[in-house]
Simulated assay, not measured.
Amino acid sequence: MNFPKPDVFAPAKLGPVTLRNRVIKAATYEGLTRNGQVTDALIDFHVRHARGGVGMTTVAYCAVAPEGRTDRRQIHWTDGAMPGLRELTDAVHGEGAAVSAQIGHAGPVANPKSNKLPALAPGRHFHATTQSFAKAATPADLDRIVEAHGRAGKKAIEAGFDAVEIHMGHNYLTSSFLSPKINHRKDEYGGSLENRARLARDVARAVRDAVGDRIAITAKLNMDDGVPGGFWLDEAIKVARWLEADGTVDALQMTAGSSLLNPMYLFKGDAPLREFAAVMKQPVKLGIKLVGRRFLKEYPYEDLYLLKDARQIRAAVDLPLILLGGVTTKATMDTAMAEGFEFVAMARALLREPDLINRIKDEPATESLCIHCNKCMTAIYGGTHCVLSAEPAWGSASA
């Protein structure tokens, strides 16, 4: 199929929002919040990406409920968080970029020891990294979480966000319900794909009903969990079609992998076992040293590594799509546009060089300095940054 190739650096509509270009800074947990509050360092992180040229930057991640955090320091949508979030959005807008809030519930990926609240999953499930069990979510739990997504959408508007990204990937709560590997329920949330997709569709509907067309709504949807028996592309195509038919999202960002079962599947490149072990507490530290290679598997990196699967989503829906995975150069951006994707999302390359977009715009032959070592993943506990950079993307501000 031939698609008209838009200019990646021209303004583009995303739902009701006009972005100055088609490049989105993907959600990468910044590790720069304290007690659920925005810090100067978090603001600086996103201002530097905005100043560096992206059309929109994504704040990751803002949990819809306190038990849905992967760490107790993360933002969730309390009244106390609102002034800091407004300061952040105003600062990003001051640089000419839009800003999105990634909203969701971590489900079985949440850390119950840190949150001091039970993690929730389709059924009882053990999380190796936190060395703890998630409990089965009740229908009442799910109703509460659906409503909480709607409230988060309203809060995002109050805080000045231009968009929200609903997290439906990586075996966070809605993704865990989609996965036949994890979801063995016998009620209306389990069994058939239609039942397993009920939570995702209800969440998207709640957000749409709450925000209308005042801000854009995107969803980050898995194409492949990266584990045998998990959610896979054939089912992802059907869910994408349902979300399109429901009219609840303005765009889909296709992703892959499981933070719970196969975290390196999304990233490709090196698996920095030694660095992961160094930042973990016992007994996880010992486990990584002994059997880490089984959990942190290594996959070869190549540019546009999610394109092959994402093409099949592109062929199945008319919704705008955001291509993630190995977008690092003007050539890869142009390929995405030629393949019919309306936007591209970038993460590691921008951690390495927050001003990369401006430099590519000035000199299209510019190459990214990111080497896909993935050591940035181990930096989240003290502020996410490229360990090879002279200065992190949040500058010298205190976290």
Rank of each mutant, 00 (worst) to 15 (best):
Q102R: 13
Q102P: 07
Q102C: 05
I103V: 13
I103C: 07
I103L: 10
H105M: 03
H105F: 02
H105S: 05
G107N: 02
P108I: 10
V109H: 03
V109L: 12
A110D: 07
N111D: 14
P112H: 02
P112E: 03
S114K: 04
K116P: 00
K116T: 03
L117W: 01
L117A: 12
P118Y: 06
A119Y: 04
L120H: 04
R124C: 10
H125Q: 15
F126Q: 11
F126C: 09
F126L: 13
A128N: 14
A128V: 15
T129M: 15
T129F: 14
T130N: 13
T130M: 10
Q131A: 13
Q131E: 12
S132N: 11
S132Y: 01
F133P: 00
A134E: 00
A136S: 13
A136W: 08
A136C: 10
T138F: 12
A140Q: 15
D141Q: 05
D143N: 14
I145E: 06
I145T: 12
V146L: 08
A148C: 09
H149P: 00
H149G: 01
R151H: 13
A152P: 09
G153N: 05
G153V: 06
G153L: 08
G153F: 05
K154C: 09
K155P: 00
K155W: 06
K155M: 13
K155S: 09
A156M: 03
A156Y: 01
A156E: 06
A156N: 04
A156L: 04
I157M: 11
E158V: 06
E158N: 09
E158C: 06
A159I: 10
A159T: 09
A159G: 11
G160H: 05
F161I: 09
A163Y: 02
V164H: 07
V164C: 04
E165L: 10
I166L: 15
G169V: 11
G169S: 15
H170L: 03
N171I: 01
Y172C: 05
Y172T: 01
S176P: 01
F177H: 03
L178E: 03
L178A: 09
P180W: 06
P180Y: 04
K181Y: 14
K181A: 15
I182P: 00
I182G: 00
H184G: 11
H184P: 00
H184I: 07
H184D: 12
R185Y: 11
K186W: 05
K186D: 15
